[in-house]
Every structure is written in structure tokens, then in C-alpha cells.
């Protein structure tokens, strides 16, 4: 069972700010989903390989050249934050504790 405290920790890891009462609500809903998916424990998977790709492709490589999707100015125009010297200006990342 995921406790309210664990939900708050997971939310912090995922950078989701929770509103008042949300931890309780999500704890209830997530626990019912996790209880459902735990039925996989009854399946014997000894010696079974894990699948991460379904059509059998492996290590697809290409020449290390730049493919142009769009122009720099168009990309920078996507941000709502200030742009300085072609860089997006954000709040300080390291703060005094």
C-alpha cells in the first residue's frame, strides 16, 4: 500500500506539486491500480526474456550528420521565457539552503 507520504515523495520525484487533499485521493486511486497490476505475480516468467521492442529492430544507426527540422529562431520563439544570447533564461537552479 502506498501511503500519503509515499505519494508525496513520488510526486516530488516527478516534479508534480500536489494540492491539498490530492495525496489522499491519488493514494486511493493508485493503490487500486497497483493492486490490479500485481496479478502479474501469478505468472511464471522464469527463463522468459523481457521485451522492449516488438519488430526485432536492434541498434539502428545512421550517419552522424545534422538533420534540420527547423530554424534556430523558430525554436527559440517557442519559449515564453526571456531569451539571451540564444539561450533560454530560467530561475536559479542552485540556491542557498
Amino acid at each position: 500500500m502506498l501511503s500519503k507520504k509515499e505519494i508525496e515523495h513520488i510526486a516530488m520525484l516527478a516534479r508534480l506539486g500536489l494540492k491539498k487533499g490530492e495525496a489522499e485521493k491519488f493514494s486511493r486511486q493508485l493503490n487500486s491500480i497497483l493492486e490490479y497490476v500485481r496479478q502479474l505475480n501469478e505468472v511464471d516468467t522464469d527463463g522468459v526474456e523481457a521485451t522492449s521492442q516488438v519488430t526485432g529492430l536492434e541498434n539502428v544507426s545512421r550517419k552522424d550528420t545534422v538533420l534540420r527540422f527547423c530554424e534556430k529562431d523558430e525554436l527559440l520563439a517557442c519559449t515564453e521565457l526571456p531569451v539571451e544570447r540564444d539561450q533560454v533564461k530560467v530561475k536559479s537552479v542552485i540556491t542557498e539552503s
Partner: peptide, 8 residues
């Protein structure tokens, strides 16, 4: 575990 059951 899920990826293994996916194989099955």
C-alpha cells in the same frame, strides 16, 4: 516483470 509477461 511486465516486459516478461509481454513476451508471453
Amino acid at each position: 516483470k511486465a516486459q516478461k509477461v509481454r513476451t508471453l
